[in-house]
Design a protein around this nucleic acid. Structure first.
Lengths: 174, 174
DNA sequence: TACTACATTTAGTAAATACTAAACGTACAT
DNA sequence: ATGTACGTTTAGTATTTACTAAATGTAGTA
């Protein structure tokens, strides 16, 4: 009845879908991950179709994004031409992998544009009160971005962003 | 010409818009913040209209979101019935404020649903291999969320998530 | 009281995004 | 080489989200 495994899986999947949407990812992405995460064995595309109700096309594209982020892994069985997917169960590893991925993204391009603005101003300096103000503000944002960047780079460098490291951080922040 | 202050401001605004979109916020939001951030004085709605090209209605609603996140502050001048807005220039303060805001959000509701799933399983336990597997996975996700939650709470509690704290964290992560 | 200068809400539109259905490509099996 | 079982791409649709224009609300001022 209401507490059967299928129901529980469905509720869980629903929850992850919402979390996914909250972070600006398609909700289907969360659903796909959830289904894989709760499966003891790797699943083929068609099995994911059955579990999520999405079409093969959608899953094909979204699962590639998940794989890029390191949240799922593709595998194959000998003598079976299908691809199989399984979820990355180590979330700390996943976070590192996501951060890594974001390095080369659109985001970095935008951040670099702030750096460029700064450079332009320095190269064409004008002695003026507002100019000065703007320069300082842009510079402040820039160094904030740098701090964030260093932080993420440090996280990515860690062999494992495990429980112990999180604990350490919590200790320092006390 | 191409290196005039208005041009520089416009480029900067463009950059922040993209960053905003990247994080799943409307690009107008980034633009509004950028304009305020580069203004030496607080601006009225109409001034923001002029600078961004958005309509008053849009700005009215989006600036409220920005204010909720603590990224802008509303102020007023005596004998002037207009509202004035200025950007929060301390990004560390802003981050804390955003994290705080997120505590009571849709996100937390979704996270709680994971906790509920766990509870349901414990209350209606079935001795079964798959049941066991699912339970352990849900539990792992749950404790991951807890770690994140503790981390953000710790950050929110800090009087100032300043440069020094970031440095400390970097030190620990070495 | 009514007028003015503003902010907010609402209803509708434009644009972006997630998704579907079906065509296409590819590699293995016969 | 042809057929089959799969994954991917494409073109189109539905849904969501950002935005506009205009109506409405509100407080201060004459």
């Amino acid at each position: 009845m209401s507490h059967s495994l299928p129901t529980i899986k469905k509720d869980f999947t629903e929850g992850l879908s919402q979390i996914s949407r909250f972070w600006g990812f398609p909700k289907g992405m969360g659903a796909i991950f959830a289904v894989l995460y709760l499966s003891p064995t790797p699943l083929s595309l068609d099995e994911i179709v059955r579990e999520t109700g999405l079409t093969k096309g959608a899953i094909s594209t979204e699962i590639r994004a998940l794989a890029r982020m390191g949240l799922v892994h593709r595998s194959s069985k000998l003598g079976d031409r299908r691809d199989y997917y399984e979820a990355e169960a180590d979330f700390y590893a996943a976070i590192r992998s996501i951060l890594k991925e974001r390095q080369n993204s659109e985001f970095d391009r935008a951040i670099r544009s702030v750096k460029d603005t700064l450079k332009t101003m320095e190269d064409h300096w004008v002695e003026d009160e507002e100019w000065n103000f703007v320069y300082e503000r842009v510079q402040a944002l820039q160094s904030f971005f740098d701090a964030i960047d260093n932080l993420t780079k440090a996280v990515v460098r860690l062999e494992s962003l495990g429980f112990s490291n999180v604990t350490k951080i919590l200790g320092v922040l006390k």
